[in-house]
Every structure is written in C-alpha cells, then in structure tokens.
Design a protein around this nucleic acid. Structure first.
Lengths: 207, 207
DNA sequence: TAGATTGTTAATCGATTAACAATC
DNA sequence: TAGATTGTTAATCGATTAACAATC
C-alpha cells in the first residue's frame, strides 16, 4: 500500500489537519469529499492534498472523490493511531496542568499516561486523575507503561536534562513547550510549541 | 540595510532561535560567535545561518565572526522587538491561565495587555494581575491599547468567530492553540501551536 | 603572514503547483 | 454520454548546502 519513498515532514504535518476536517465531515454525516472541497476549507492546494494522499495509496475514486469514512481510517492507520498512543508529561506546573486537563480532548487514541515533576511538594497529588510521580521513577515507568511520546513543560533550564532522561527511557517523540532548543539522537523527533518564539516570529510581520 | 527580497517564513522562524542562543551567550559574557559555533549548538547548517543573517545586512566580520551584542540588537530590530509588543489573550481557561502566568517569561518586550472571556462568572476576576474582560469589549480595547497580536485559547468550536473578531479589531498575528484550522485575510499571520495535531504528527514516526 | 570566517554565488535538493490522461 | 475528479507527470518555485574569493 504505502510506497517506499521517504515521506517529508511537511506531508506528515498536514495529515492531522486533513484528519481533523474529515472527522468534522463525519460528524455531519458527509460521506464523500473532493480534494477541491478539502483544499477550500483548509487553505491547501487541492493538488497538494491529492499528492499527499497518493503517497500512501490510492484512496480516492476518479470522478467521485474520497470516501470520508475510508479516508479517516486510512489516515489513522498512517499516523499509528489505531492503537492507543501513550504520552508522558514532564512538568506539572500551570502549563502541564492545563494540558493534562485537556486530556479529554486528545481524541484519536492518545492519552497522557504518566506525569512527572521534581517538586517533592507535588508528589502524591493528582492532575486530571493521574498521579504526579517523582523524576526518578521516569526511567522505569516509561518502558513499563509503553509510553512512546512525551510533552515537556518544565522551565527552559531543565529542558535538556529532561530530554536526555526521556531519550534514555526510550521516548521516540517530544513536544517541547520550554522556550529553548533541545537536542537528541536523530531517531527522536522533536516538535516545538513554545509561546515565546512563536510570538516573536509573528512580531516580524507587524506593520 | 535590509535588502528588498521577500523574506521566507522559514527564515523568520529561525530568527527567534538565534536570538535565544545569542541572549544565552550574552548572559555568559561571550562577546563574539561564529556561524559554526551557532550552528553546532542549534543544529542548523552554518551556511544557512550566514545566509539568513546576510539577508538583513552585513552583521559579521570576516575572519572574526559576529559581535554578540550587536547581533542581538539587530535581530531585535528585525523582529520589531525594540518597542513593546502588546498581546491579547482570548480564553481564560486552564491554558489561558498558564500562558498568562508565564507572562513574566515573555521577555524581549512582549506583554499580555488584555484578557477576554465569554464566561460571565469570570468577569471582574484577574489573571496574573490582568482583569478578565467580556468579549464585547474586545473591539474597543484592542485598538485602544494598541494590541497587535493575539493568542487564542478557546475551544475549537469558538476559534473561528474569535479569529473574526480579532481580525476586525485590527490584530495582525494570531497564535492559535485551539485544535482547529482558522482562516483570516492574507495580511493576518496565523501560527498553530495546538497539542493534538503536534502529537499526532509525532505519532507517525513511531516504530 | 597564516588561519579563520564571512558574504555570496553556484549547485543541489526538495516541495509545490499546473496540467492532463485515465476513469468513475 | 458528459461532467467531475483522481493520480501522476512535468514544470515551477523555493530553500538548503557547498564552495570559495574576500578580508579581518
């Protein structure tokens, strides 16, 4: 099914966007969609959408478009969302709390399965029903619970050492909210979502 | 100074990363840095760094490198951070609270100057010393306080209408944490930072 | 001077878009 | 059949990297 080219990060970044729109169509009981309609709603070139999808298989029907349910299923397969994906959160501060409580909205088989913090005062407490564990349990809990992704919401000064711990524990992808660059082996993907650099690059476009 | 090419978004996204590392060097009283050193620390090709910077002027000295203080000043000018940049936050839920409290860390002349929420129960309350205002004051407060950027932390279902209000009020850039695509005029930049799509694209790389 | 490093050109690489035959 | 729309090739566009003369 999938062709053996290497897939660009840009394509992978667009798949969740497509999935989100398709889920919306499902909720509205729309059964078929064209690349044109998707493109119009998502501000993406229709040819790009067709090309992105064709990378993984022939999902559409000429003259008709894409079956919404089928395409949702296929994209979920591609994104490995067919089995539950467990996520660790490191840093139970304000931001960590907010993201954990948001857990309910992490649809599509994603779940925060463990929370870690180095503040002894927080140990034993729970966030969104998940106990806060000390950092030194991280190395054991992550493989035990088969956690593969992690969210970093610690201060910038601690981010690299947390990244190192996570990598050693077998984490394969990190979403970093700390305002600092972190480095890991090539086989660990790192995405950045920090407020500061996002806002700073927006500021460039002022006036 | 600045050349009249159009600057790619990729370059603009890297400038805050450079700035962050340079600030770190400043704190450590390092006065000079080479593109090689920067590249090594930030995982960016040195030629890319030189090219990015050369887009805006001749900031370096051949054989020597870049003066850290001078380069910081120049990048801050390019990013329009020489005057205070005011930011509105819409949605005073958990995530909004977390980001507002983080305000102290929004260095480099950025400040959350107003917070809006449509929950009557929250009105009059404060977050990080900033009063929560009702949505219908948005159209007046934003131009009054010369707010140019906004952060959206409302539920996905409300994000587009909030985006419309912000755009009408004159906002020029939006950082969207809601898990949905939003659309605005071409002159309004939108950056996305939602947890769900970030995690989903990370999941692609599992095993 | 010799070594280091920039700014810039040229080469490479990759991503996006247009166009269209195939076909539902 | 006629209209619509995919999958894919070719063309375009843009971004990254290598290489090196200029020069501190």
């Amino acid at each position: 099914m999938a062709k053996h080219e290497k897939i660009s990060e840009a394509v992978v970044r667009r798949l969740p966007i497509y999935l989100r729109y398709l889920s919306y169509l499902q909720q509205n009981e729309v059964t078929t969609v064209s690349s044109q309609q998707m493109g119009k709603n998502l501000d993406v070139n229709p040819a790009q959408i067709r090309k992105d999808l064709a990378t993984f298989g022939d999902f559409g029907k000429k003259g008709i478009g894409y079956d919404v349910n089928y395409l949702v299923e296929k994209i979920r397969q591609i994104l490995k969302l067919t089995e539950e994906v467990r996520v660790a959160l490191v840093g139970a501060g304000h931001l960590g709390h907010a993201i954990s409580n948001y857990n309910a909205y992490l649809k599509d088989n994603m779940r925060i399965a463990a929370i870690f913090d180095n503040d002894p005062g927080k140990l034993g407490k729970e966030v969104a029903g998940i106990p806060i564990q000390p950092m030194d349990e991280l190395a054991k809990t992550i493989p035990d619970k088969q956690i593969k992704l992690a969210i970093i919401t610690v201060p910038a000064s601690a981010a690299q050492s947390v990244c190192d711990l996570l990598t050693q524990a077998g984490i394969k992808g990190i979403l970093n909210f700390a305002p600092t660059t972190i480095r890991a082996n090539k086989d660990v993907r790192i995405h950045y979502a920090d407020v500061t650099s996002n806002l700073q690059s927006l500021a460039y476009y002022l006036t």
